[in-house]
Design a protein around this nucleic acid. Structure first.
Lengths: 152, 152
DNA sequence: GTCTTGTGGTTTAAACTTCAACCGATGACT
DNA sequence: AGTCATCGGTTGAAGTTTAAACCACAAGAC
């Protein structure tokens, strides 16, 4: 096409497409596997972050940043999770603008049930398919990507 | 939690999360960069596949498979691209059920304009951040993932 | 105190994706 | 030919995400 652009070479092209297709398939698969628990991978990640947080709760904005989601999207999703009684909102005492999203007991219980299946899926469809070195490389690469792009 | 499950070890956990976050940020960034051309990364990929195909056209189902999309989603998206005169639909002569999606001249022109920017983005936010070996590893890993999960 | 600006979160509508139902064409079987 | 299951694709409604406007509180300047 044009000659000033540094196009990807053949191997890079192949790797890039493999990444795009592989990611699409992987996410679809993991999503699928979670559907039996009434969750999507996005919901699942929210529950996980909350479960790891002190008091099992996090500020909305904090949670949004960790998942790289817009606040708006998070509001909607947490609304649904709240309707399903997996998460509870409580207003933050120290900053009256703030809202805590807190994992409920039934949210925690559901997560306990879903987690083993999910981890199996991640292993079977990703981790166990790669050599430890290659998987470590994936970690390094995307860590650099995250770092480079930074928070929104 | 439970003891029968093979949880991810610390490094695997970190790598997995880096991948999730990095991918989210990367896709958002690439999407953003394409918005100046009125395209999303999904639209872009469709145009690319068509531009590479013989006669610059592909059967809908074929295109859907290559992008790992549902036929329904592709129908909707191609409908929008057609309304923007970037793609044209023509009915397939050999199988009257089939439909060709064909890149229009203005679709091709737009792609020519967008491609250099997009490639720069892919380089700057991914390829150039990794060593060649690490990036090759990414390719291997997701190739294995694709292979393992297979077509839907 | 009050003004101004910024932050945290929600809301609304529009855009997009998913899901299930659908329709015409095809191929196999009788 | 006639029936039946399947395939390729579309449709429309329901559900989700995005974008922009909005509200309440917070924080710093005056």
């Amino acid at each position: 096409m044009d000659r000033g652009t540094r196009w990807l070479n053949a191997e890079q092209q192949v790797a890039w497409r493999a990444y795009l297709l592989g990611t699409a398939r992987l996410m679809a698969k993991l999503d699928d596997d979670l559907r039996q628990f009434g969750l999507g991978i996005n919901d699942y990640e929210i529950l996980v972050r909350l479960s790891e947080a002190p008091e099992r709760r996090l500020r909305m904005a904090d949670l949004a940043d960790r998942l790289h989601q817009s606040r708006s999207r998070l509001t909607h999703t947490v609304g649904r999770l709240e309707a399903a009684d997996l998460v509870r909102r409580t207003s933050c005492t120290s900053d009256k603008r703030g809202v805590w999203a807190e994992l409920t007991d039934s949210g925690f219980t559901l997560l306990e049930q879903a987690a083993p299946h999910h981890v199996d899926g991640v292993r079977e469809n990703l981790v166990d398919l790669a050599s430890p070195e290659d998987f470590a490389a994936v970690g390094r690469v995307f860590d650099a990507v995250s770092e480079h792009i930074g928070q929104r």
